[in-house]
Amino acid sequence: MDLSRPRCRHWRELVLLASLLACGIRQVYSQISIDPESLLGIKGFRTILVLQNVPQDVQEYSWHRGTNDTAENMIVSYTPPSETWQSGPMFSGRENVTRTGSLVIRRSALNDTGNYTARVDFGNRTEKATGCLSIQELENKPGIWANASSVVEYMDPVAAICYTNATNVNWYVEYTQVSSNDRMTISPDLKTLIIHRVSRYDKTLQCETESIPEFPRRSEPLSLSVDYGPDNVQLRTSHSILNGILSAEIGSQVHMECKATSRPSPKYHWTHNGSLLSLSGAKIILPSLAWEQMGRYRCIVENPMTQLAMYREFQIQVPQSCCEQRLLHLRSQSGQRLSLRNPDLYVDQPSLHQ
């Protein structure tokens, strides 16, 4: 894509008309012509003044500064097909002529603005075309500022301001263009964006200006630190859990781990039968499961920044067959007669959960 040739025809024709009036120059109408869309360039970019309607029998192309094709005004000439170029008094070292007769100006400067005349020599006749080139300067990148850099999801609002003199401003959140909706508002002058309920997906804000169509200038990304969660709390164990029950043999090793989505990283607390354990961290390991370690476990996940907490809980029990064997062993030691069909008949039955 040639950055020196935007395609917005209507806008470029308006600029061309204004340039012609400002330069006080009339277009010389002939068979050949200069493409109006090429009469606008951008400072620092390559500009190509495109010559149109040129027949095949050309003996020489020459370009001149101003409205006259005199020798003292010549920039550069080209004689096809010998590929011979000749520079003139107005040559700056940045110009060249293509094989189709167009004038190339590298690294366009503001003082390149002005009138240019193309002369085409066919041997038995000469044709000319004149146009007024306007070199525009891109404005600097707009600045961006926000009233907060650290926020809590769905609780804190953010107002961002775009510092620019441009009247055409676009806003981007996470590199996607946004407009006013039920969650955010753009001011009538387009220079302020208010996000009423910031989400974790609003981490990057940018504003973009377009003082010259098809040459947008976007601000540096503004990063927000959004605290969120905990949510999506998951429980992983070394044994399968069915209906909230983890079945494990006495003496077996039991691993328990909590996972949650949160920013910043959450704090983890564990309780056993309602009592807070001194253990901390997302993981708990019971190297050799004992009877007193049976019961209800709860993993509590807390985010101190959002002041939110969630938990997951489950019950550790021995398998039913193991439970019956344990009752049989205890009561045989006390000399009692057992009924495995209804062990609750014995009031002195030991508790399985401590």
Rank of each mutant, 00 (worst) to 15 (best):
152 V>W: 11
322 C>E: 13
238 S>Q: 05
105 I>C: 04
137 E>T: 05
9 R>E: 15
311 Y>H: 15
96 N>S: 15
44 G>D: 10
83 E>N: 13
216 P>D: 05
36 P>N: 01
203 K>H: 10
50 V>F: 09
214 E>C: 02
30 S>W: 03
348 D>S: 06
146 A>P: 06
309 A>W: 13
5 R>L: 10
319 P>C: 08
281 G>H: 03
283 K>A: 12
250 I>H: 15
218 R>Y: 12
150 S>Y: 01
78 Y>L: 13
304 P>E: 00
332 S>G: 12
142 P>K: 03
16 L>P: 05
323 C>D: 13
283 K>Q: 07
245 I>C: 14
218 R>D: 13
131 G>E: 02
31 Q>W: 15
135 I>Y: 01
295 G>H: 15
267 K>C: 05
183 R>Y: 04
215 F>Y: 08
267 K>F: 11
231 D>V: 05
305 M>L: 10
81 P>M: 12
199 S>D: 12
326 R>S: 07
247 S>Y: 15
93 G>F: 12
294 M>Q: 15
23 C>T: 03
79 T>E: 13
169 V>C: 01
292 E>Q: 15
58 V>S: 09
44 G>F: 06
156 D>V: 12
289 L>V: 07
14 L>M: 07
24 G>R: 12
1 M>I: 00
246 L>C: 06
105 I>S: 03
339 S>H: 03
14 L>Q: 07
227 D>V: 14
191 K>F: 10
257 E>Q: 09
96 N>D: 15
205 L>D: 03
230 P>H: 10
92 S>R: 10
221 P>M: 05
171 W>N: 08
298 R>T: 10
180 S>Q: 02
118 A>K: 06
282 A>R: 08
176 T>A: 04
84 T>K: 14
3 L>K: 08
9 R>S: 10
307 Q>D: 00
48 I>N: 11
297 Y>L: 14
172 Y>W: 09
235 L>D: 10
29 Y>N: 03
311 Y>W: 11
318 V>D: 09
17 L>H: 09
338 L>H: 14
221 P>D: 06
91 F>M: 10
33 S>K: 00
17 L>F: 10
105 I>L: 03
131 G>T: 04
337 R>T: 14
131 G>K: 00
118 A>M: 06
77 S>N: 07
294 M>G: 15
112 D>I: 15
262 S>A: 07
67 T>E: 05
336 Q>H: 08
287 P>N: 06
185 T>D: 03
269 H>N: 01
245 I>W: 14
249 E>D: 08
299 C>P: 02
112 D>Q: 09
187 S>D: 00
289 L>R: 07
53 N>W: 00
36 P>F: 00
185 T>H: 02
218 R>V: 07
49 L>R: 01
203 K>D: 04
254 V>P: 08
153 E>Q: 13
187 S>L: 00
247 S>P: 11
155 M>C: 06
168 N>H: 05
22 A>W: 14
98 T>R: 02
150 S>H: 12
239 H>L: 05
4 S>M: 04
218 R>C: 12
133 L>N: 02
132 C>I: 00
134 S>D: 00
81 P>L: 11
